[in-house]
Design a protein around this nucleic acid. Sequence first.
DNA 1: TGAGAGATTGACTAATCAGTCGGTTTTAAA
DNA 2: TTTAAAACCGACTGATTAGTCAATCTCTCA
Lengths: 185, 185
Amino acid sequence: MDKRTKLMHTAKRLFSEHGFYGTATARIAKEAGVSNGILFHYFPTKDELIKAMYFDIKDRIFHYSLGQVYKGATLKESIYTLWLAAVEWNLENPEDFDFMLQFENSPYYSIEIEKSHKYVQMSVELAEKGIEQNVFKHLTPLLLFQLMSSLVDTTVKFLRINPELQTDIEYKNRLFEIAWDAIKK
Amino acid sequence: MDKRTKLMHTAKRLFSEHGFYGTATARIAKEAGVSNGILFHYFPTKDELIKAMYFDIKDRIFHYSLGQVYKGATLKESIYTLWLAAVEWNLENPEDFDFMLQFENSPYYSIEIEKSHKYVQMSVELAEKGIEQNVFKHLTPLLLFQLMSSLVDTTVKFLRINPELQTDIEYKNRLFEIAWDAIKK
DNA sequence: TGAGAGATTGACTAATCAGTCGGTTTTAAA
DNA sequence: TTTAAAACCGACTGATTAGTCAATCTCTCA
């Protein structure tokens, strides 16, 4: 693993555990087993490191999710697949999940950053389709996406403290119905 | 206004603007117009200050909300009243809202802290009632509350970037239906 | 082989930070 | 009026911080 990746892994772990505030750059470098200088070689500032990590995580969840949906699926099937992919990815990557929550609720975050990512753009397009087909409530597509996202987050938080339910696909389906009922007409 | 309150006001503004990380205690004291020492007289550590602010905000939103619900209301009416109270309170107190989002998604937060507050306890009791009456989905009461909360947050974020909709009560009712559909059976 | 570019080091620094402390003023009750 | 506690001040400190830099190493390709 190259040092840039090592740094991001270590940073993710420390940030999710101690927050942006509680994590010194020197500590990241030390625990990653690299020199202090190389951190600033790859990431000019601590903020750049944080932002780079955000885009890296979004990229990974995007490619993971995209691999799951298939062409012939109905709208509800597609939404279900994306919902489930998001839930499971976040459960399997708890540090990424914690990092994202912190980042998206910090002053770093803005609506421009959110809109700039393909993952959001794809989801918004899907929302538009659902509205056109009169399946979704007639609301701003971006809002529908944000509602879904926040329900995914809440679901993940809940399944994290109830791990015995994580393998119960029947229960997960019931959790999906919450999100579906929220946006469907 | 006493100095303790002044400090909390200033801290809230600075934290919501620059985050916990970006706000020095010395700056809080300076902009509050008090000495550095008095901050640590009232709050032994920066963390204590942050936690005290959390409980203060929860208290205020709790008393505000409680004043709105009336005895004879149906379950849906009560939920609507609480939903609307939360949305409007957060819109009117954007700094409190930003602070809460940051806090609740930071490593400071835990499920124990959440459960410890009366606001949460009251909401959970209401959720239990809804489940008993077969009006809500049969899920953990705490989960139903958390779902509602996250939908309130998303709604507030949305109304913040669309201020022209903030006075449109008809539109707000449609936004409430999202949350209602999510939890109702 | 050699030259140039990028990767890597770790000691270093200037600034900033949370928290302390010795002392003064204000408050309120006795 | 006395007294003691609480409020208050701001200079101070030791630790920590993000970020720099001059030097060395490693890789690549001509």
